[in-house]
Design a protein around this nucleic acid. Sequence first.
DNA 1: ATTGGCACTCGGGCGCGTCGAGTGCCAGCG
DNA 2: CGCTGGCACTCGACGCGCCCGAGTGCCAAT
Lengths: 337, 337
Amino acid sequence: MTDDRRRAVLHAIVEGYVSTSEPVGSKALSTRQELGVSPATIRNDMAALEEEGLIAQPHTSAGRIPTDKGYRSFVDHVAASALQDSQKRAITTFLSDAVDVNDVVERSVRLLSQLTRQVAVVQYPSVRESAVRRVELVRMGAERALAVVVSADARVEQATIALGEDPSEQEFERLAREVNQVSVTATPSSLQGDLDAWAAHDGQPDWAASLAAAVAKSARGGTVERVVFAGTANLARAGTDFEADAMGSVLDALEEQVVLLRLLHEMTGQSQDVAVRIGSETQHESLARTSIVAAGYGADNGGLSLLGALGPTRMDYPGTMAAVRAVARYLSKVVEA
Amino acid sequence: MTDDRRRAVLHAIVEGYVSTSEPVGSKALSTRQELGVSPATIRNDMAALEEEGLIAQPHTSAGRIPTDKGYRSFVDHVAASALQDSQKRAITTFLSDAVDVNDVVERSVRLLSQLTRQVAVVQYPSVRESAVRRVELVRMGAERALAVVVSADARVEQATIALGEDPSEQEFERLAREVNQVSVTATPSSLQGDLDAWAAHDGQPDWAASLAAAVAKSARGGTVERVVFAGTANLARAGTDFEADAMGSVLDALEEQVVLLRLLHEMTGQSQDVAVRIGSETQHESLARTSIVAAGYGADNGGLSLLGALGPTRMDYPGTMAAVRAVARYLSKVVEA
DNA sequence: ATTGGCACTCGGGCGCGTCGAGTGCCAGCG
DNA sequence: CGCTGGCACTCGACGCGCCCGAGTGCCAAT
C-alpha cells in the first residue's frame, strides 16, 4: 500500500523532472491529481526515498530530482510505452525503400535520432561466415595490390596487399587465378586451411601468404566493427543538461568508437531485450551524465548487431525504449530477409 | 605610412581577440610593443577602421572586435603561417601507413581536426571515368539482385537491381556472363553505348536495362558524394563563441551534408588554393557565426575533391590555413600515387 | 600627424533586502 | 498506525543601488 504510493511518488518525480527539467516539490505533486494525498504525506515519502538514495535535492529548500539509482528503479518498474501510430508509420515509410545495407543503416540511424530526439547510434550488421564468390586482384603499382573479395551473402571487402617485390605480369595473373580457384571451391570451414596450404606450396612468392591471410580475413567477417551516428545536434539542444565542456567529452567518447562499442556489447550481452545504462552505470567518466538505451538486432541467424540511443540522464526512458525496440525489430526483419 | 599602421592595428586586434576572446582596447595595444605609438593615436585609427566597417564595439566603453569584413581583410593580407616541424612530422607519420582509401580519408580527417582544433571535413576522393574490370552479380532473392562493379582503378561500387520477375537460374547466369563481357571489353567512352545496345537486344528481359544503367552509373563515378567529419567536440569546447542553440544548428548543417558540399564547391570553384569563407559570407543562416577554410586535393588527374576545417569566426586563420593546405598537399600525393 | 589630458559612458561585480518555494517536525485526527 | 494541517525555518533567485574601472571621443598642444 504505502510502498506502492512511494513508487508512484518516485515515478511522478521522474516524469515531472524529465518534462520540466526543474526540481519538483511536494506541493506540485499533490495538486497533480494522480496521487490523492496531501503534500505533507508526500514529504514523508520523499524523506524515505531520499533515505534510500533514490532522489536528492540540489540544495535545501529546493524540490527533489531523481538520482541515477532513482532512474534505475523507475526504468525497472515501468513498461516501455507504446509507439504512436504516426511513429510506426514513420518507421515503415522511412526504411521501406532503402537500396542497400549502407542505405538501410544510414536511414535507420537518422530515423532513430528523430524518434528519440537523442543521439542515435547503429552498428553495421555483423556478418556470418560465408562462402567466397569471387576474389578480384588489382595491381596498384610495383609493390602493392588491392584484393576485393565478394562473398556469397553479397558483402564486399577490400584489403591492400604488400607484394614486397615486383612480380611479372604473368606471375601476378597466375596467382590471381589460383587464389580464385582455391577460394571459390572451398567451403566456409575449409577456407582457411585450403588457403594456407596453397600459400605454402613450392614456388609460391612470399606475398601469397599475405594474400591468403587477407582473403581469409575478409571472408571471416570483414574488417572492424563500424558504427554510425546521427543527431548529435540533439545533445547541444538538450538545454542546460550539459555544460559546454561536458559536451565536448561526450562527443569525444562518441568519436572514440571503441569505448561505445565495448559498452554496447556489455549491455546487450546478458539479455536480448532493450537494455539501459544510466549515468554512472556506464562506468565511464565522460558519460557520467548520459544514459544509453540499446538493443541488439538481427540475432536469429548470425551475429548480433547493436543499435541504441544516447542522451542526458534526464531523458524520456519509456519513449526512448519503445523507439529503440521498434527500430531494432524492424531492422531485424530487413536484415534477415 | 599611416595606412600601413592601420592595417597593423587591425591585425593586432584580430590576433588579440582570437587569443583572448575578449574585446581589445587601445591601451592594451599600445603596450604590446609592436606598434610604437600612443593609445590616442591608436584610437584615431580605430575610429577610422570602425568607419570602414572593419571593427565594431559590442557596447560603448568596451574594446573593439573584428567584424566579418575585418577578418576578411586580415585573411587577405596575411600569409598562411608556416607549420611547425612537429606538425609536419605528425602528418607523415599519421598518414603514411594507411591501408586503403577509407583508411586514408578517416586518418586525414582525424589529423586535420587535431591540427586545427576545429571540426574537420574531408570529402571522399572523387573518381575519374575508368574501365570496368569485373561485374559481379549476386542473386538476393526472387526479385532482387546485387551488382558489384570493380573498376580498373580499384574502386568498388554496389547497387541493387529490381528484377521485376523471377528469372530462371540459367537466364540469370547468362545475363551475368553477358554483362561482364560487354562491360570489360568496352572502353570507358563506349561503355554507356555498348551497354544500351546490349540491353536493347531481342530477347533480353526488362531488367537488363536497369542492370545496364546501374553498371554504367557505377563506372561513371559512383553514387553520391560523401563526406566525413571529425572533431565536433572542438565546437563544444570553443568556449562562449556559441550558444547551445546555435551549436545545434551548426551540427544540423553538418549532418545535412548537401549544404556543406555545395558550399565547399562554391569556395574552391574559382581557385586552386586555400579558400576562406567568413561568417555571413557562407550565405547560410545557421553558419552565420562560423568560418570555413577549404582546399581541393587530387586535382592533377581526375576530379577535384575537397577538404576543410570549420570553426567559430574567431579562429586562428593563418594556422588553420597552413594546416589545411598541408594536408591537402599530402593527400594529393597519396591519391595520385 | 602625433600626443597627453580630461570628461564621459556604461557594463560588470558586489552587497543588501525581499520573496517564496520547499522543507522538517509536531500535534491532532480517523 | 498512517495521514493531514499547521508552523517555523532555510536558502536560492531576483531586483535594486552603488561603485569602479576600462575604454572612449574630443581637444589643445607640440
